[in-house]
């Protein structure tokens, strides 16, 4: 039986028909053509599929469609500005040299987005904890940690500027 669910995706309200078995990742990738969210595993281990649902980092590969109605979802596509400008976290990933194959990067960006939106003062231990939910085979994590700290710096600077602007 097909049913329909309605939720907000990257700021836009969408209704999609589903067959019933789908996880969020399939809805994103197959029904909404949002292929920036990646799949790396089959047992919710790698974090490549992470998106932000109602402000929290969630693994879309196990997120059931049933919990989606009325939810607010942000994916990597929603991080880039309407003008094509990069989000500070994306910019930090590039500047810190974290991008090698890049397959893990969208998930990591979303994890950090959730973390810093909640607590921009997060310390290294908290950042490490968040990043430990993400596998990266390329970098050895050194550049990822560096980029995560850089992202925090960029966001703090942005906040200051915004305050000054007011």
């Amino acid at each position: 039986m097909a049913e329909a669910i309605t939720f907000k995706i990257n700021g836009e309200t969408k209704t999609v028909a589903i067959e019933g078995h789908e996880k969020l990742i399939e809805i994103l990738r197959e029904k909404l053509d949002l292929t920036g969210t990646k799949c790396g595993c089959d047992d919710a281990s790698c974090g490549a599929c992470t998106v932000v649902v109602n402000g929290e980092a969630k693994k879309s590969c196990v997120f059931p469609h049933a919990k989606l109605n009325g939810a607010e979802v942000t994916t990597i596509e929603g991080m880039t500005g309407k003008d094509g400008g990069l989000h500070p976290i994306q910019q930090a990933m590039i500047d810190g040299g974290a991008v090698q194959c890049g397959y893990c990067i969208p998930g990591i960006v979303m994890e950090l987005h959730a973390l810093y939106s909640r607590n921009l003062e997060a310390g290294e231990a908290e950042i490490t904890e968040a990043l430990s939910r993400h596998f990266c085979r390329c970098t050895g994590y050194e550049a990822i940690m560096k980029s995560a700290l850089l992202a925090q710096e960029y966001l703090k600077k942005g906040r200051k500027k915004a305050k000054k602007g007011k």
């Binding site: 920036g36 590039i94 890049g102």
Partner: peptide
């Protein structure tokens, strides 16, 4: 290639 990868594109 970093921009395309960091934007999921």
């Amino acid at each position: 290639d970093a921009v395309k990868k960091a934007t999921g594109k």
